[in-house]
Amino acid sequence: MPDLLDWLAMGGYAWFVWPSYLIGLAVLAANLCLPVMRHRRLLRRGAAEEGGR
């Protein structure tokens, strides 16, 4: 447990290291998820139009 807290404290730089990684993960995840969601939306719409004919 003290080991974990020690690691989370990042030698006193926790307020800089963790936000960096958090922002990084958020940006990278958004870059991946947005196009996948857009593609799914288009597929759904395409399927609906094809079925409606």
Binding site: L32, P35, V36, H39, L42, R45, G46, A47, E50
Partner: peptide, 29 residues
């Protein structure tokens, strides 16, 4: 990986009215 995902999305966007894409979409659903 991201570029492939984006390309797939933009091709789908541009070809959404074409028959091959509709077939593809119907096949997935």
């Amino acid at each position: 990986t991201v570029l492939l995902a984006r390309l797939r999305g933009s091709i789908a966007e541009q070809c959404r009215a074409q028959q091959w894409f509709r077939d593809e979409a119907a096949g997935r659903a």
